[in-house]
Structure formats: structure tokens, C-alpha cells
Design a protein around this nucleic acid. Structure first.
Lengths: 334, 334
DNA sequence: CTGAAAGCGCTAACAT
DNA sequence: ATGTTAGCGCTTTCAG
């Protein structure tokens, strides 16, 4: 393995000088600079990152902790992070926690040991706790949360107004009886979408906890799942035949609903319209294509990386927060 | 920052001893071992990986070079790699090349500098070249290729027989006029699937290059794309009305075909059946659900990591190759 | 402008 | 069984 010493020798200079030209620091005469670069090229020399990290305390690597790579959002978001990080010479270490809290905690030790310069948490299960742990060991951390707008989270999206947009569109299309396929309970962003729905149908004062007791409301739990979406659509349309439009809390359950309607031979959007939330890749491929609310997933990734790198450069600048807007994507289903 | 020295001092022993208990090497009396661990816990001490890497020449990190994280296969495969790597204490550095050859070459320098212990290339654009470059700098490399079974590639799948299985199933279902929605030309695994099709329809002697000149064959190029699949289905059914089954070279184009059929009100599989290849996530969500050939993507990832780690442990053992079988997944469309 | 030297935190002999 | 010491390859004073 060729080291800085070999280069110094080959170029007939001291190692200090080689280091200076490599890093572009301090003064080096044009001529020696040339000689050094020549030697570097000739030996295909690449500085040893570990040695560098040891002295500079910077590894040029950032950790990305995410709950599940195979979840539709995550790869897109991760790409945003990777692209932005790479642009600034950083490399990412990806840790998949598979939603397990114990795995989440493990990442602290792993990333500390790997000496990353900072970390991005993507929709962590226990964000507060985990972010705290990282801060305790002085690792700058950015929390990206498609779901939560509270506390330490710095990047998220405006679920409430996104849902409102969907509902307004549905009403513009002439739908007055709109059913809701709700997400899991007490998941914060599921709650925000539900709140938007309730407000839209005039149930401004109804607390979220009491929703289940009001069977007269056209709401069914689909828990963000395809199969549950299918079943919820069935239930809802049977108990509330007046409904002409289904608004699903996420695309996956909207797809389930679409499935049910197709099987029943119910025309979409002719007899029943469907509108989703998320705009996952699939939504443009099904028949009919799904009208939905799009999350700027890639941009969120870029923004997360941008903020982190910014923080690495200027550790004491105030923390930025950012809430992304959501946009309506009109397709065939509504 | 607390170092091994602090621990040594706190435990009243030398740094060597601390190192020994941390790594479980050499003899240490039970009693001192205890004292050391106590100090470690008390200080929440985590060894500095960079320092360790510098002396041991092992970073416990492996590089994963992939062409596009957002490509349906990749996240699943990456998870397989990550899970297996983590099980053995390794962390992965993910580099996305976005199919750009110049980005691929860059990864060599980046990963060399980051001092990874080995690398996995996932369907690289220029696999031979890239693998060579890594080997030149003594980095063990495993090539995972959904597409190619030649040369240095160590892990791939049996496209030819997979396609044969699909076709045999179609014939068992009573289809004798089967059309083919082909992938891009001269992509090796696209070729293998096409070859399987030609052999199945009795065109054993027809060279792949001449396929386009034989318009009497029910073959249309769909280039693995959704939109092209839609168009190819249209063309094919118009020029070859006798066709009762469409076999698509990949799921995405099969989905496109499904789309066209739905728009035309053609019953699937009643009037025309469809069969795909890959089993991407979406395929089970569309209506009708897609019958297809499944690639064991996650397992391939695990296997790739397993082989790499194996090689890191025993550098001089012979290289393993592995070809995965493909399985037919029967759903509604055929 | 540039060379020499002192570490960065750790492991792995080498003594004892 | 354990303390001491010599580097690992690099950056960064500090002289000159």
C-alpha cells in the first residue's frame, strides 16, 4: 500500500508538503505542487481515510438510520440524501432498523464507532429518544419525519392541509358524501389527516378519540394497508350507500379500495370516485390511475442532507425547521 | 472524548489490558476484566473506529455500489445485504451511481478512501471494468447481477429457465398462440428471456439478431417500460389477433399491457391472458393480479453479503458462483 | 515556502 | 496475567 511517505520520497519533498498540496492548504510553490501531483498520479495514490479521520476528527461519512428500505418512500428519500451528500464529498452509511426499537438504539453505538460526522433519522419509531441519544454523544442529528411535526423534528410535511386539498378537490368535482378510509389510530400523521377530514365534514368539535363511537360517520379504519383498504371500502359502501367518493388516508389503502370496486364492477370514478394520499410509484400504474396527494419525498431527502451538512459546517447556527407543502395530483380516479 | 487511556486509568490498568478485554484476546484475569468493563460502562466508552482501522486495516464496513436505489429490485436486495452484513458486525456504505459510468468509476476512489473491507456491485453498467478496478486495488468484490451470467459475476438468476416455466404454464392453461413483449435488445438477460421464448415456439434456430426481421412472429419490443408495454400490447394484438396470451419480459411492461387491455374492455384472462417476469411489489396489487416469475431478490442480497464476508474471512478460498432458480407465482392474470 | 516532529487512539508485540 | 512501547498514515504546529 502506498502512503504519503512514498509520495513524499518520490517527489523529493517532505510529507508535510504532500499533505499541503493534497488538501490545498498553506503555501506551496507551483513547481513542487506539480511534482507532488505527478507522483500521486503515478502511484494512483489515495490518502488513507482512517488516518485522516483520526487526526481531523472528520470521517466525511454520515449515518442514515431508516426503518425499512423496502417501504415505498424510503428509497426515494434515501436517494435524495445520497445525491446531496455525494455532491459535498460525503458518503452515507445506511442502517435499517426494521422498525425495531432495539435496533434503533444499536445504531447509536455503531455509528459512533464508525465515527460518522452526523446522522439523519428517517421516520424513527422513537424519534425523541433516539435523537436525544445521538445528541448526548455530540453527533449532530436531523430528524426527517413524514409523520410528526412536533419537538425536535426538523423536516416534515403538511399533512393537514394536504388532506384539505384532496377534500376540496373532491367537492369541486361535485361529491358531497365523502367517506374516509382512516389510518392507524394515534399515529400522529394519520391523526392529522383524519382531523382534516373531520373538519371538512363539519365535525370540527369532535375529538379524534370519539370517532369510533360515531357509526353514523362514513369512516372505516384501513390502517394504511392494501387488504384493509379493500375491506374498509366494502364496509363503508354497505353501511353508507350514499357515499360517492372515498378518500383514503394513504395510497396503499386507496389501491385496496380500487381493487374492491373493480371486483364489484363499480365504475370509478363514475359511480364511486377514489382519492389517495402519498403518490407512491404504483399509483400511476393502476387502472384507473389514482388521484392523490404527492409528497416531495426526494426533495425532503435533499433538504435533510443539506441541513445536516450545513450544521456540520456551522455548528452553532440556529436550527432550521422546514415543513413541505403537499400537492394534488389529479389522475383518473377522481 | 473518552479514550482507551481514560478507561485504563479509571480501571487502574494499562491500555493493553483494556484493549484485550475489549477484543476478547489474550489472557485477562476475571477480576480485572470486571473492573475494565465497569469503567467502560461508566464512561459509555466506545472505541474509536478510525484508530482501530488504522492499525488493524479492517474497517468493518463494506461498500454497496448500486445503479439506482429507486429501482424496484434494489431496496429489497440492499436490505438483504444490510441484514446479513449487520449480523456479522459490518456496516454498509451505499453509493448510487444513477447508471452513470463516470459515477461508477468514482466509487473506486471513494470506497478506497473510506477504507471499506470489500464491495458488492449490484447490476453495474460496466461490471467487468469496475470489478477489475476494485481488484486492482485489492478490494474483494462480489458482483450481483440480475442480468448476466458470464465472466466474473458470481450471483445471478436463471432467466432462461424462468421464462420457460412461464411459457409452460401458459401452455398448460391451454394457450397455444402466445405473444411476447420483449425487453431491450442486447441486454443479456433480456436476450435470455427472448431466447427461451423463441425456443418454446419452435424457433430454436433463429438467431436473436434476426428476430426483428420476422414480422410474422408475435413479438413486440416493450423495452421493459410501462408505456412501451401498453403500446406493444396494442400493436401485437392488432397484427396478431390470434394471440390469447401475452408474455412480457418484465412486470412493468406486463402492467402496461394490462392497462391497455383494461382500457379496451378486453377481459383478462378470459379473452387475453397476461404473464409477467420479476414479481415486483406492484404486481400483486393491480387488477387482475399478475401471474409472474419471481426473483428471490432478498435472498440474493443475503447471499451476496454472505459470500463477501466469507471471502474477507478466508481470502484464499475458491470463488463461489451461484445461480438462483426462479419460481412461478400464479395469480389471476393467467 | 518547506522539512521535521509531535501526536490522533488504538492494537500487537515484547517484556516482565 | 499485565504494563510498556512502537507504530498504523495522516495533519498540523513549529522552526527555519
Amino acid at each position: 500500500m502506498t502512503t504519503i511517505k512514498d509520495i513524499a520520497q518520490a517527489a523529493g519533498v517532505g510529507v508535510g508538503t504532500v499533505s499541503r498540496v493534497l488538501n490545498g492548504t498553506g503555501y506551496v510553490s507551483e513547481e513542487t505542487r506539480q511534482r507532488v501531483w505527478e507522483a500521486v498520479e503515478r502511484f494512483h495514490y489515495v490518502p488513507n481515510g482512517a488516518a485522516r479521520t483520526l487526526v481531523t476528527k472528520r470521517s466525511m461519512a454520515i449515518g442514515v438510520v431508516l426503518h425499512d428500505l423496502t417501504n415505498p418512500f424510503v428509497p426515494t428519500l434515501a436517494r435524495g440524501i445520497e445525491d446531496e451528500a455525494r455532491r459535498h464529498g460525503y458518503t452515507i452509511m445506511v442502517l435499517d432498523t426494521d422498525w425495531q426499537p432495539e435496533n434503533e438504539l444499536q445504531t447509536v453505538t455503531i455509528l459512533r464507532q464508525q465515527a460518522v460526522d452526523g446522522v439523519i433519522l428517517v421516520s424513527p419509531a422513537h424519534g425523541e429518544l433516539l435523537a436525544g441519544k445521538f445528541q448526548d454523544v455530540n453527533l449532530p442529528v436531523i430528524v426527517v419525519d413524514h409523520g410528526d411535526a412536533s419537538g425536535r423534528s426538523h423536516i416534515t410535511v403538511d399533512h393537514y392541509h394536504g388532506a384539505r386539498k384532496a377534500l376540496e378537490w373532491a367537492r369541486q368535482q361535485g361529491h358531497s358524501a365523502i367517506g374516509f378510509l382512516a389510518g392507524p389510530r394515534s399515529l400522529r400523521f394519520a391523526d392529522l389527516r383524519l382531523r382534516a377530514y373531520l373538519d371538512n365534514i363539519g365535525q370540527t368539535d369532535l375529538p379524534l378519540e370519539e370517532v369510533d363511537q360515531h357509526e353514523e360517520l362514513p369512516i372505516a379504519r384501513a390502517d394504511f394497508l392494501f387488504e384493509q383498504g379493500r375491506l374498509a371500502a366494502e364496509t363503508l359502501l354497505r353501511t353508507h350507500p350514499e357515499v360517492t367518493c372515498l378518500f383514503a388516508a394513504n395510497d396503499l389503502s386507496a389501491l385496496g379500495a380500487l381493487r374492491y370496486l373493480a371486483q364489484q364492477g363499480i365504475a370509478v370514478p363514475g359511480q364511486v370516485a377514489v382519492i389517495g394520499f402519498d403518490d407512491i410509484f404504483v399509483s400511476s400504474l393502476v387502472h384507473p390511475t389514482l388521484t392523490t396527494i404527492r409528497q416531495p419525498t426526494y426533495d425532503i431527502g435533499v433538504e435533510a442532507a443539506r441541513q445536516l451538512l450545513q450544521r456540520l459546517r456551522h455548528p452553532d447556527q440556529p436550527i432550521e425547521q422546514r415543513v413541505f407543502d403537499l400537492t394534488l395530483v389529479v389522475r383518473e380516479s377522481c
